[in-house]
Amino acid sequence: MRRLFPVTDQTDETAVREWGLGELADAYAYPTGKGAWLRANMVSTLDGAAQHDGRSQPISSATDMRVFGTLRGIADAVVVGAETVRQEGYRPPRAREAFAERRAAAGQAVAPAIAIVTASLDLDFSLPLFAEPLVPTLVVTGAAAPAERIAAAEKAGAVVVTAGDGAGAEPRRVVRALAERGLTRLLTEGGPRLLGQFVAAGVLDELCLTVSPMVAAGDAQRIAGGPSMAVPERFELASVLEEAGFLFTRYRRT
């Protein structure tokens, strides 16, 4: 891996090497003194596909997965939509020795919490994500969500967080409700519909986008779905890393 932007001695072609997890954690450190900070981590092909056959793994790489693991390793909570939980087969994050000292120094739990945003709570509460988490899984929903499903979630050991007056959660209130629980380093992994909601609500602070050197054609979703914004919002480039043709970009709200 090498750094293309900002330009440093790590940009030199002859300095290409595998970065340690500590170096990646430093490169992706959350800003200090900003309060709640919501970053997204997504991957896209050159022609805009965010997945292939319903999953992101076919367009990813080993280094992309190291970045994925690093972003999880430094987050307080991973915010994800229920459909992505079902499609990607989410499991509880594990404690990783590489990040243990860093997390302890920051006052974080041993692993990030998974926060599932869902209106219907149509989830299998017998899965390890609920039965075997190191940190209790959060179910983020609205006040009018089905009462029997809320009861089932709580019976399974999940923590139900209300972040909306209707059946579903409201993006701004999701961020606020998690921050009130001390979860300010937030990472969303989508899916595209949830990311689109965060974008449209103006609460996305940072986008970590892996550009995969592949083309897929077809009708796969983009990284963000939903209605178009009235005016596109501009983000500024913060950094670019490169390895084997994959670009690991990071953009922040201007």
Rank of each mutant, 00 (worst) to 15 (best):
H52K: 12
A152N: 06
R102Q: 13
A105F: 08
E154I: 06
A151D: 12
G157D: 08
S56P: 07
S212E: 01
Y28M: 12
P112E: 01
F99Y: 14
E170A: 15
P171M: 15
Y30C: 06
L71W: 00
L24I: 11
S60E: 10
P146D: 02
L241M: 03
D122V: 01
P92K: 15
V231T: 12
V78K: 03
G245T: 10
P136Q: 06
G73W: 03
G107H: 06
L195F: 06
S239M: 03
L187D: 00
R66P: 05
A167V: 13
E206F: 13
L129V: 08
E233V: 15
A113H: 04
D47V: 14
V7M: 04
V215R: 02
A100N: 04
T118R: 00
A100V: 06
G22N: 13
A29K: 11
L187K: 01
A151I: 06
S61W: 05
V199G: 00
G164F: 05
L138T: 08
F125N: 01
S120D: 07
T118V: 02
V175G: 01
R86A: 13
R2A: 10
G81V: 10
V231I: 08
Y28N: 06
R173F: 03
S126R: 15
R102I: 07
S239D: 02
G226W: 06
A177M: 13
A145H: 01
E88V: 07
